[in-house]
């Protein structure tokens, strides 16, 4: 059986976009002949000369360049080498790209790929989750695909949207996550998916944490607990309806995220459920995130910094006991 990985899907989506839409081009560090730090653009420059362009190490200028190109009718895909480095392009992302449509009426369809999240040994500056920062700003769309099929379909859709999209792709999933096919049953951006039905508690997760939550749900199933797992897929727009409907069935909510604990996506999910669905809750809603320190280098520390199968399981057990 053919096997495709998460990164294969990202490369294939970019290939298909370049092939189908002459307005698409790719700009980023080492994306050309080298094929990108993670090989997400391998072979694309050779096949699409002039449209897969190496950039200087200038994240601010890369985003400003993309905004200008989008104004002129192009649909740039910008590869940040690591999500962490998008902080250097932050100003152009939130103040130029994010404000452009509201201010001028001219949309800027750009897709910024953010290789996100931790892998053991990557340390404080190659491991960050940036989705909450960008979701805070108006005008930006933030997606967090967790499956091979979503990696493909959501990148295709991101490039087709007229808004700037932060496409947060998880580095841990790149080669670890495999599927038979990348052509799944796509949902539009803005809709969450129930990936494991249940009735005793709802676990809301996104990106790589979906897989940790699923493993926790499967293990707890052997004890008779039926845990519903919701994959948000996009954190902005946030599909409050699907989350609320799930909580209506289960009465209990745990939100799981790999980002730092202050504010963020899990806090937003709980805030919405508490304010709009307080009557649905049988227990105080819970959240679990990474620790409030920089992401540590050593694997012993790194594994204990982010939520794990064990800590998620413990959090679910606690939720069920409340």
């Amino acid at each position: 059986m053919a096997e495709v990985t998460y990164i294969d899907a990202i490369r294939e989506a970019q290939h298909d976009l370049l092939e189908k839409d002459e307005r698409v081009f790719i700009y980023g560090q080492d994306v050309g002949k080298f094929g990108g730090a993670f090989k997400a653009t391998q072979g694309l420059q050779e096949k699409f000369p002039g449209r897969v362009i190496d950039a200087p190490i200038s994240e601010d200028a890369m985003i400003a360049m993309a905004v200008g190109a989008a104004v002129e009718g192009m649909r740039p895909i910008i590869e940040m080498q690591f999500a962490d480095f998008s902080s250097v392009g932050f100003n152009q992302l939130v103040n130029n790209a994010g404000t452009h449509f509201y201010r001028t009426g001219v949309p800027v369809p750009i897709t910024v790929r953010l290789p996100s999240g931790g892998t053991a040994g990557s340390g404080p500056f190659h491991s960050q989750m940036m989705e909450a920062i960008y979701a805070h700003y108006p005008g930006l769309v933030v997606v967090t695909p967790a499956t091979v099929a979503d990696a493909y379909a959501m990148l295709m859709e991101s490039a087709a949207l007229d808004d700037p999209v932060l496409y947060c792709e998880h580095k841990f999933l790149y080669r670890w996550l495999k599927a038979d096919t990348m052509k799944g049953d796509p949902l539009p951006i803005g809709q969450a998916r129930i990936v494991h039905p249940g009735k005793h508690a709802t676990v809301v997760a996104y990106s790589a944490m979906v897989h940790e939550a699923l493993r926790a749900a499967e293990e707890l199933a052997t004890e008779g607990w039926e845990i519903e797992v919701v994959d948000l897929r996009s954190v902005k727009p946030l599909d409050t309806d699907t989350v609320m409907a799930s909580v209506a069935r289960t009465g209990r909510l745990l939100a799981v995220g790999e980002a730092f604990p202050w504010g963020g996506v899990t806090a937003e999910v709980i805030s919405r459920v508490a304010s709009e669905g307080f009557h649905l809750l049988d227990a105080p809603p819970q959240r679990i995130n990474a620790r409030d320190t920089p992401v540590p280098y050593h694997p012993n520390l790194w594994r204990a910094h982010r939520p794990t199968l064990e800590s998620i399981q413990a959090a679910i057990r606690n939720l069920l006991s409340l």
């Binding site: 400003a64 993309a66 200008g68 190109a69 104004v71 130029n96």
Partner: peptide, 12 residues
């Protein structure tokens, strides 16, 4: 930021 924005317009 105008320098790179104009650059993008010209590159497009």
């Amino acid at each position: 930021g105008g320098v790179a924005t104009v650059s993008g317009m010209l590159m497009a």
